[in-house]
């Protein structure tokens, strides 16, 4: 049993491996995050989830998404002026990077960004940056789907996510999990005929046809892989989501195939 205080409130836990973020959230204490997803391992890239941890004389600023609750008696602050300043700065950075993204704009104003002090990222005209490099897509592909269809390329300011050599990824199973987890809508999926296009990965996937209604829906070559990997029912390969819902509404009520949780809920 470890006992700590968060914002002055005493909280006990006997859960091993619980992180500060999980503990705080389970107690209804909100901490903003961008690169955290409960189905994925903590990554520590957005730094929004920073908190102040004091043990004895020392206070340090850590990312709560990965900080293990192990030390008895520490006190944690989640919203000091310093932390607010950091979060505000981070959103100013992201806003300068992605000025057109609603979700970033909203979050920025929510965290106190009032004026634009930083110049916007310069991109060729008619292009806007939509990716905040949170890495959710790369990680869902690797950790949940078990593939490495996309990865980070380049360093520093040039960093971006791409399929190998910017061309059709051989590893891509067309599951679109990346699209579902993307918080900014940077990953776009288009379907036409029996083809599915995932930009910006330059990937084109052929789909199988629904046995009931005849529309194309699931990736042709990797249906079985995904079915096994995600423990999906056998109908998954035969029926499109609409028909499947119709047929199996009662028995499979717990699967919400339209929401972004479909893959992650498994």
């Amino acid at each position: 049993m470890v006992s700590i205080t968060i914002n002055g409130r005493e909280i006990k836990t006997d859960q091993e491996d619980i992180t500060l973020l999980q503990l705080a959230r389970s107690e209804g204490i909100g901490i903003p995050t961008l690169c955290f997803h409960k189905a994925l391992l903590p990554y520590g890239a957005c730094r929004l989830c920073v908190v102040e941890v004091t043990g004895g004389q020392n206070t340090k600023i850590v990312n709560s998404c990965a900080y293990p609750v192990r030390e008895d008696g520490i006190s944690v602050q989640t919203n000091t002026p310093k932390l607010k300043q950091i979060r505000k700065n981070i959103l100013e950075f992201l806003l300068a990077r992605c000025p057109e993204i609603d979700m970033v704009k909203k979050m920025a104003s929510g965290l106190g960004v009032k004026e634009k002090r930083l110049p916007e990222k310069s991109l060729p005209e008619d292009q806007t940056e939509e990716c905040i490099l949170c890495g959710l897509c790369v990680r869902v592909c690797g950790e949940v789907i078990g593939k490495e269809a996309i990865s980070f390329v380049h360093r520093g300011a040039e960093r971006e996510v791409a399929a190998p050599f910017y061309s059709q990824s051989k590893d891509c199973v067309g599951c679109t999990a990346c699209h579902f987890v993307c918080p900014t809508g940077a990953i776009k999926v288009k379907e036409s005929g029996n083809k599915r296009f995932i930009s910006p990965w330059n990937t084109e996937i052929t789909l199988v046809t629904c046995e009931m209604c005849g529309i194309s829906f699931a990736p042709e070559n990797s249906g079985e892989y995904l079915q096994a990997k995600l423990g999906l029912p056998a109908e998954w390969l035969k029926l499109c989501p609409q028909c499947r819902r119709k047929v199996a509404a009662e028995t499979m009520g717990k699967y919400d195939f339209t929401s972004r949780n479909v893959i992650l809920k498994k």
């Binding site: 730094r47 981070i90 890495g135 300011a157």
Partner: peptide, 21 residues
């Protein structure tokens, strides 16, 4: 340091770039 930053976390990648500018 900006050139050598891996670019993973926001403060180092974006903050450093803004400072440089």
């Amino acid at each position: 340091t900006q050139e050598e930053s891996c670019g993973k976390c926001v403060p180092c990648r974006e903050g450093g770039e803004h400072m440089l500018k």
